[in-house]
Design a binder for these strands. Sequence first.
DNA 1: CTAGATGCAAACAGTTTGCGTCACT
DNA 2: AGTGACGCAAACTGTTTGCATCTAG
Lengths: 158, 158
Amino acid sequence: MVASSQFRELCHRHSLAATHQRQVIYETVMSLPGHPSPEAIYGKVRKKIPCISLATVYKNIQTFLDSGMLREVSLHHGAMRLEPNHEPHHHLVCVRCKSIEDLDAGNLHPVRLRQKLPRGFQVERIAIDILGVCRDCASKNPSGEKTLSSKNHLSGEQ
Amino acid sequence: MVASSQFRELCHRHSLAATHQRQVIYETVMSLPGHPSPEAIYGKVRKKIPCISLATVYKNIQTFLDSGMLREVSLHHGAMRLEPNHEPHHHLVCVRCKSIEDLDAGNLHPVRLRQKLPRGFQVERIAIDILGVCRDCASKNPSGEKTLSSKNHLSGEQ
DNA sequence: CTAGATGCAAACAGTTTGCGTCACT
DNA sequence: AGTGACGCAAACTGTTTGCATCTAG
């Protein structure tokens, strides 16, 4: 409410209409601790706008992600993906088509913990994802709209 | 087919019955390139066992994950999770309850690419997940069955 | 005034579950 | 013989869509 003008400006920068719902959703995401799910956001937004639709929440989250105003914790690949590769390796993940390519562990210097982790966390392994745009997506659409579908996305059959 | 006895032994080590379906599913996962989804696995398995049920595929994938015979590429948190934290940081992810905690980037020495990535991949950022068992899960169940539900899982309301 | 945003309900996709039957050990 | 696996269909959860109405620019 206080920063209403800031929000309007932010929307303007991303060519989005500054609606009330949009502002409340955005502020709610930013105010929630941790890494909220759409459902959790909806729950809290509804306290301010009881009649808001869950679809509106989803649509706006998508809008924020597309515009870069918000980010996903880890990419949501739609379906579970299994890892047959037992060799130590990391992943090259395309943020557009969501393809995942293996990258041999030898290509990265090993990660080093600079010091102790908080509260009795027992480390099992460290996963590194290099996020970016793969060659195919970059060539298809150098700027950056949206691509999906294509390639590896849900396939596995060669 | 060739390695049938190997598979029986593998199952025995994990106290699982060595059924035909189980073997075909396992071999299919291992044979598929990349990071197959359950649907893709089902598609290929059906070529060998046309009447197999999708539920059987899911149940066995779950069994393999639980027993450690297979691994997920990145944890499937059930729902999309948003990242309000714009500061550079990484994540501490519990493989049991799937909670996600932030870890300040200063706690890790920066990752260094040991050399060029394959084929025109445009890096946007590098995400590091430290996977393991969080204190709560470790204390509740030091051995390692299954826990889920509890904590951060889908919540966001305080 | 018009493009785009909202709300609703129905549709989807991915995954899980219950239960009767069947097969491995 | 008994425990656990399979197959089927129905249920669920998370997410998306179509369309009529409304609103910011």
